[in-house]
Simulated assay, not measured.
Amino acid sequence: MKAQLRRTERRRKLEAAALVAPLLIFLAVFFLAPIVGMLIRSVENSELPTTMPETAAALRQWDGIDLPPEPVFASFARELAAGQRDRTLAGVAKRLTYEVPNMRSVLFATARGLPETPNGTWRDTLTARDKTWGDPATWAVMRRAAAPVTPLYMLASVDREMDASGSIVKVASDRAIYIDIFIRTFWMAAVVTVWCLVLGYPLAFKLASLPPRVSNLLMILVLLPFWTSILVRTGAWVVLLQREGPINEALQWVGLISEPLQLVYNRVGVYVAMIHILLPFMVLPLYSVMRGISPAYMRAATSLGATPFTAFRRVYLPQTIPGVGAGCLLVFILGVGYYITPALVGGAGDQMVSYFVAFFTNQTINWGMAAALGSVLLIATLLLYWVYARLVGIDRMRMG
């Protein structure tokens, strides 16, 4: 009897695992694998080790003091000529240019017409072709590029870099842009989240207090934007908010303004479009929580002498905190990753981190930098979720 019970229990577990397996495989392939790939790409440093393996190995053995020994120059000259012949220097040149702006031209100029045998030593030959090869700082950059992993992109994404001695320092003020971009991204997402909460809370409250027949009909109107493309909705806001659009014309017609307002291609337009798109993501968690709160609680509070506002503040509002937290977290996480809406409705100073991720991915083909920015955004989002989970856990302990 016990053996049959164990077999039955084992069969149920296998059936449950078989039902869950497709979802787990889907998440692993299309969610976890891209994230892991992005994290790896943000520290990957394969250009020089792949194209010049002997030089990379020799540079990793070098102590980094003064110029490297002659064998390093010899292997570099040999693999430089081979890379020029095989046309494989582009990746190395691109990687070195991230740290030394003119390194691409120096590398290709040195490779062109490089003799098979040196005129003296390879150090003297290469230095004679370009004095850059006689600078220890150049070889320090080469040594960093020879490592299998690099902090270059992650440091650059937070406006930091490594100097010639290997110390982490701030970049020049005219190059320090990414910290400001991250602050702008989180600020804009926070503003949108607050406005969605202000607009969505009373809407969800009203929907939850109506009869199911009416609230279900109104909920369809809330969900209606989900059936329209974000690109179409964003383009519609461009038409509505432009200087000759219907909103400006209506404001002028009622006499509120004397001339058209600039409502598009600025921060105002981005806020309006993002709030319109993200508002349903706030309403749905709030509605699901409010729908489960019995009206008897409010009636009991008022029957005990509490005013309607006091009953709402001390009885109803605390029970909706899980919905508020879930809605705010959902809207904020979606907001920090927005790209299409700020790109179409905002101006140059309204672009968020996702715009620069797309820029490095599609235009400059600097995937390492794009992955680093995405990784920093992912880490910040995970930290936010951790803080939310801790706060929810503390509140549950207090309620318990």
Rank of each mutant, 00 (worst) to 15 (best):
K2A: 11
A3H: 03
T8C: 06
R10H: 09
L14C: 04
E15W: 05
I25E: 04
A28S: 15
L32W: 12
G37C: 01
T50Q: 12
M52F: 14
G64Q: 01
D66C: 05
A74D: 06
F76N: 11
R78L: 13
A81V: 00
D86S: 15
R87G: 07
L89R: 07
A90P: 00
G91Y: 06
V92D: 09
L96W: 12
P101R: 13
N102A: 15
R104W: 01
T110W: 04
A111N: 11
T117Q: 15
L126I: 07
A128T: 10
R129Q: 10
P136S: 04
A137F: 10
P148G: 14
P148T: 14
V158D: 13
D159R: 15
R160T: 07
K170P: 08
I183H: 13
A189W: 03
A190Q: 01
A190I: 00
F205C: 04
L207M: 08
P211R: 15
L224N: 05
F226N: 07
I230K: 08
R233F: 07
V238R: 13
G245T: 08
Q252P: 03
P260E: 13
Q262F: 09
L263F: 14
A273L: 06
L284Y: 01
Y287I: 00
R291T: 10
G292A: 06
A296E: 09
R299H: 04
T302H: 00
R313C: 13
R314W: 01
L317D: 03
L317H: 05
T320P: 00
I321L: 11
V324D: 02
L334G: 10
P342T: 08
G349Y: 01
F356W: 12
F360A: 14
N362F: 09
A370K: 03
A371Q: 00
A372S: 12
L377W: 03
T381I: 09
